[in-house]
Computed example of a mutant assay.
Amino acid sequence: MVSVVVVTYNSEGTVGETLTSLDRQTYPDDRYEVLVVDGGSTDGTARIASDHGVEWLVAEGATIGECRNRGVDAATGEYVAFTDSDCAVPATWLDSHVERIEAYADHEDVVGVGGPNRPFPDDPAFAKLIGSLQGTVFGSGGSPQSHAIDEVRLVRSVAACNVLYRADVFEEYRYDDAVNVGEDAEFHFRLSEAGYRFVFDPTIAVSHHLSADFGAFCKKNRSYGYAMARIQRRHGRVIRWYSALPSLALGGGALAALADICARKARYVPLLLLAFLVVSGYATAQVYRDRRSPLALLVPVLLAAQYCLYGVGFLEGLTTPDPVPQDLP
């Protein structure tokens, strides 16, 4: 038995295709259930969900982490799977996940299976460009859910939009109710510290609506940087070694510019620009091979925006004071 949890909020434009894809699973109908946990939508999300006969749970004003836990609480399956309300899964999604995790039944350290997420075939060209960029090591930071990894391997974390867990892991570990963005990275960090791993299978991919325009892309990267810094402050240690690199690059670039200004000679900034051109040129070539589109020429601009906005968000997350706890009545 598999319990599929979909977390949603004001998703009337996309949740229908998510639930339709879950309706069409090749997995036996009597061996999976779909639970939709809503954070308090004010649009037509509830109406669309009711058309699919799913179990509807409302967690008004809850964080994503809290919504995921509400789904776990209501789940009855031996496995708990998650996808998001802006995704669509292939018809063999549950079959593939269950087959893969049961192949590791003798591995007590394996608690789940995950796979990549890719743009929808009919998404805007910009979203597909972002998908190809994330397929490069410089665009994804090496995270398996985005980077184009072509082999099954054990990893420390996968994306919560495409994951299946052994339900018994939730007897001891839970998502953090206080975390809204990056809740999967935080949860999987704690699991990895306890010695647990996920199987990453590149063939179990879901379609995911990525940023449709430049503004959304920038906003998302800033929020990711902020969230990762807050999570690392929460634990008092580094979760992903590369998460601070964009902020360090911003600081290093500022110091290099200051040094060149003081010396009245361009020495360090040209070297930094050359290094960025090499990195962005490599990523551009990879994206062009994937998309065969002149839009690949935008990759240097996108990488610069991604690193800068993530770096700014990370610095904000490190320096923003924690909220003052309120006395309970």
Rank of each mutant, 00 (worst) to 15 (best):
R234V: 01
S157C: 04
S192N: 09
V238A: 06
G115W: 02
R166E: 08
S223V: 15
H107G: 00
T319I: 10
K219N: 15
R156I: 08
V152E: 09
G281W: 10
R222G: 01
A88R: 11
T92V: 10
D123L: 09
Y79C: 01
R291P: 01
R222K: 15
K128D: 02
R292D: 08
G317T: 02
K128P: 02
L303Q: 10
E12S: 06
Y226I: 10
G225Q: 10
E183R: 07
E17K: 13
T203V: 04
S3T: 03
T76W: 13
N10G: 00
G77P: 00
W241E: 14
P119C: 03
R240Y: 12
E33I: 10
H235N: 05
V181D: 13
Y288P: 00
P119N: 06
L154V: 07
E33R: 15
D122E: 14
V36T: 01
I239L: 11
R70E: 10
L94R: 09
G53K: 14
S157E: 13
G142S: 07
T83G: 01
R31W: 14
W241A: 11
E60Q: 15
T83P: 00
S11W: 13
Y310S: 02
A75I: 03
G53C: 06
A81F: 07
M228I: 09
A91V: 12
F314I: 02
G53M: 11
H52I: 05
R31Q: 14
E78T: 09
L274D: 15
R70G: 00
N221Q: 15
E186T: 05
E316V: 01
Y165S: 02
D109I: 06
D150N: 09
S50G: 05
Y32G: 00
S247H: 09
I101S: 00
D150V: 06
R230F: 03
D73E: 14
A227T: 04
Y307F: 15
G195D: 05
D123T: 06
S41C: 01
V299R: 03
H235A: 04
L309V: 08
T42P: 00
C262K: 11
L271Y: 12
G141Y: 11
A229Y: 06
I48G: 01
G215V: 13
A244T: 08
V54C: 06
V34M: 04
G13N: 15
Q25W: 12
A46F: 12
W241D: 12
H209P: 00
H52S: 02
E108S: 12
T320K: 13
L245G: 05
A167N: 04
R240C: 00
T14C: 05
L210S: 02
R292W: 12
R174D: 05
H107D: 12
D327P: 07
G253Y: 11
T18R: 07
I239W: 07
A185K: 11
Y310N: 04
V179T: 07
R31I: 08
R289A: 12
G40H: 12
S21K: 08
A49E: 08
F217P: 01
Y288K: 10
E108C: 10
Y307V: 05
A259G: 00
L19V: 03
R222P: 00
V152M: 09
G39M: 08
